[in-house]
Design a protein around this nucleic acid. Sequence first.
DNA 1: GCTGATTTTTGGAACGTTCTATGTATGCCC
DNA 2: GGGCATACATAGAACGTTCCAAAAATCAGC
Lengths: 350, 350
Amino acid sequence: MTAGSPKDRVTIVEIAAAAGVSKSTVSLVLKGSESVRPTTRDRVNAAIRDLGYVYNRGAANLRRAHSNMVGMIIHDLINPFCAELAVGIERSFQAAGYVPFIANTAESPVRQAEVIKLMREQGVAGLIVSAARGTPDDALDGLVAVGVPVVLAMRRLKGRRIPVVGPDNRRGARLAVERLLELGHRRIAFLGGYADSVVRAERLEGFLAALVDAGLDPAGAIHAPTTATREGGAQALEMALAQRNPPTAAVCFNDIVAFGVCLALRRRGIQPGRGFAVIGFDDVQDAMHADPPLTTIAVDVMGLGERAAQSVLRMIETGRNSAEDHIGAVHLAVRESCGGPISERLEKRA
Amino acid sequence: MTAGSPKDRVTIVEIAAAAGVSKSTVSLVLKGSESVRPTTRDRVNAAIRDLGYVYNRGAANLRRAHSNMVGMIIHDLINPFCAELAVGIERSFQAAGYVPFIANTAESPVRQAEVIKLMREQGVAGLIVSAARGTPDDALDGLVAVGVPVVLAMRRLKGRRIPVVGPDNRRGARLAVERLLELGHRRIAFLGGYADSVVRAERLEGFLAALVDAGLDPAGAIHAPTTATREGGAQALEMALAQRNPPTAAVCFNDIVAFGVCLALRRRGIQPGRGFAVIGFDDVQDAMHADPPLTTIAVDVMGLGERAAQSVLRMIETGRNSAEDHIGAVHLAVRESCGGPISERLEKRA
DNA sequence: GCTGATTTTTGGAACGTTCTATGTATGCCC
DNA sequence: GGGCATACATAGAACGTTCCAAAAATCAGC
């Protein structure tokens, strides 16, 4: 009903006609070129406003080396940790003038493959991938082969030289163990997480190394893989407590698992932080609001996201298709779920 | 290192040459046309595989009436409710062969305007907008004027005929009130939510209507607007309890606010569901895991997302730029935060 | 007002598809 | 073997930009 019926979009040729210049000049104005006289620039801009011109990036991308789109493939957008990561990445890309696409794969490698194909078809300039569980190691080879910058977030891909951005999983797990040792715990379990997860492997590695360094027998540590959910956490705790020599504390694969562990403890009448110490990993926003507030390994997710975006942007600009890995710092956020020294509490030694 | 150096992408012309056909034929094969001989089709497909051809949608969109991209503008992707909505929408679009763009505005109308501009430039075929707070009423007029299908999610825009998909806020609030009345409560507060929120206005409306229908004086109901956060919820509760005739129960703007209310109650030594009844709204995934599990108005978010996507898809296909509103059903999910009948508990009448 | 340097502007050929109209085989029937 | 469908295949002009090479306008100096 307003000026300009639907369907016939305004093009630079029409702007050119209206402003009495050539389409080349309009193009220059659009790109903010120095070499167009201010009076002309104003005339063109006025026409752009008057006719309601909308730039057509599809057409532009046809000519240029690469588009201004970048993709983000996230394995589970409903997971608040991933959502924060996505937002951090998006922010950096937006600031740099790129248009980020977010896609969610819901942990499905099949969906992921589809999404990657679509992104290639759109001609993305770069890609950040937080890979779905069970992603085949060659999933990104096609992309990398044609020189599309790719950075992995959180999850490494075996046997490939694709840069990774993620937290220091080993050190985080070590910090957690050291805290529990300080508090006097000697039987510490590692609970939860999918068995095939690279992240879990790294966290477990740090966990075991810390035990060994403390002169404890890592063989005795209980570490049952489960789903990385509240249910999985609850289940892992039950399994751990069913052992003949049950642990008094647990480092959990992540905060969600830790929530499940706390839930199961309470169901058994044990207060997390009093009768059993629990430490999570990630420091999701809910961790501080949980009951009790969760002691956890804090990861600067947004920071990691921004860092990943920076890497991709640098790769796009320099044309290099490699970059350094970035292992983000972590620290222990002490709250109440790991309680005070064990000696202050009722302690039952086996 | 693999066949095909970076930069020179394979085009249908090259496929045509390799398969010994014209580019038109390749195009037909790509679109799965019936009128190409099977043997030819196979030859072309083989060439596509061998040369590692990647379809260029940008180029294709240049010719076609509209692209296969659809946009989703989400006001806060970190909010699990919104994330679920996004995932529901995305799923439907993917299934229909469209490529969904997710963009997060972080409640910034400025960012939202930028994002809308970018989406237009990309030539989206349709758009679902969960508007940022403070979105000017004319924010989508440009889009609508040129005939781009737009559907609003959750938040209505005043004075515009843009279709909306959202839960039945009025009925939800009414259900909550009715439950509390049944349990014997007579002094019920409505807590939290931004003052300028349309959603809050609707929920509040339902809340007040239910009170009136029960013969209670709505003027006595306490309903302080706050931020829709845990902090806001805690604050709202403190304000409510500071009144001279404090409420014994609250309907909260949403679950997040309800979590904050529960937190504040516990800080005061009151057990939610025992000393004070709390009902949330939305039924986010955490609601059932909270302590105590939150009684709340359950909304089928994924369903709403899918519904919104369906509306946009229909608008794209039919070319109509209008659609019915869809008000999703809600129901009361009874858990523990609203407790049993008030008579069973210590009751102090004023 | 001519020359040459400098600043602005411009035509037109890409870019990789789609699509219409027009071809050319192929098969069928008499 | 000529006529006529029918099934396949294809040239070539779009689509809306960018960008190069080159033209046109402007300026400075004399």
